[in-house]
Design a protein around this nucleic acid. Structure first.
Lengths: 195, 195
DNA sequence: AGAACATGCATCATCGATGTTGCAAGTCAT
DNA sequence: ATGACTTGCAACATCGATGATGCATGTTCT
């Protein structure tokens, strides 16, 4: 229902409710992944039955949440033009864009074990883009030729994950965070002259 | 029951069972944090009622698991003599020791929201040791004077967490992993000349 | 060997979460 | 304004997980 243009345009009423539920689910579940539908409904300001009317099951709700976040994730990466922009620039842009999304949708992006066909495809797509970006980084000399790209990618994800916990809301702080992530990724935190 | 010498020495029988349950819980819960007591019991090769006899509640089981892992964690850090060994050496030793523990007890170490008084104290102790180690690293010039120690510590944890997923079993691979973690922490993954 | 204890099994009780339905009242679109 | 849709509420049904118990059958320790 959420990802592309739905077959039937939702009533303004319904759309607000759905969004409220998804946002509430994100907040509540990120605080406690085992939270009940009741707690989510309460946080959304609706009755529990309404949640069940919109999402057939708890599983469906989480799937919708993941789909929503995946879409945002995809947009964030694509907006950085990771295949055409200079790799170092793209790295920074991707970092900043993804951070912005991840700060608000941390749970949904973490709970990605989705089995929906469409969503899985988009997600795989994004991962491939990231992998390609790292190849480009290596080819451009930003990363040494012998770099273990898998380790590099995982370190990158871990740094973004850590940075997202800071959760700043203004753009200046977000840029500072992105800078710190890229910097740490490339140069670590040690004294350059040491070693 | 587990951490120090128990008031009543368990029967050989019981001890084996308890250990089997804890180890099974680690395996099963790390694969699926929402696993049921039944699944844990099955993995341990005992009846579900036996688990309940040893651990009053699911909560108690997880608490015991956390306590056990915390103890191991503590030993791993202390064995590296983080306050007396040269900081760079201690960093490496702590990394290797903690990796060894974390590979086998990843869930238990992640599920640390424990409210047991004794356990919390030990855990806080370990964290303090780590913080001190980072101060020593900075004072020794391994880290630049202006380093944000909180960020440094969090990056370090994240790297260990990532590395522990590789899960090698032999010592050579473990040392290689530890080297990689320390190296990445200090120098990142970028080309040194770049910038 | 014998007392003390642990385990497996079957059984039962309970509890919370999930999911459904009917109806009255409210909201939206045209 | 009117018909279509949505929501809240209350009630109900179900289901799985948790936790407890009694008893027969091992297992351990001395």
């Amino acid at each position: 229902m959420v990802p592309p243009a739905s077959p039937k345009p939702l009533r303004a009423d319904t759309e607000r409710t759905v969004r409220a539920i998804l946002e509430a689910a994100e907040r509540v579940l990120s605080a406690n992944p085992a939270a009940t539908m009741e707690q989510i409904a309460e946080a959304a300001g609706v009755a529990r039955t309404t949640v069940h009317r919109r999402f057939a099951s708890r599983e469906a709700l989480i799937a919708a949440l993941a789909a929503w976040a995946t879409q945002r994730f995809h947009e964030a990466v694509e907006a950085a033009r990771p295949q055409t922009a200079p790799p170092a620039v793209a790295l920074y842009q991707v970092t900043a864009n993804v951070l912005r999304v991840k700060i608000g949708w941390g749970f949904a992006m973490g709970a990605l074990p989705t089995d929906a066909p469409e969503v899985a495809r988009v997600h795989a797509d994004v991962l491939a883009r990231c992998a390609q970006l790292f190849v480009r980084l290596r080819d451009a000399g930003v990363l040494p030729p012998g770099t273990d790209l898998d380790w590099a990618r995982r370190v990158y994800y871990a740094l973004i994950h850590e940075a997202a916990i800071q959760a700043p809301e203004d753009d200046a702080a977000l840029d500072a965070l992105a800078t710190r992530v890229v910097d740490t990724l490339l140069h670590g935190i040690g004294t350059p002259t040491a070693g």
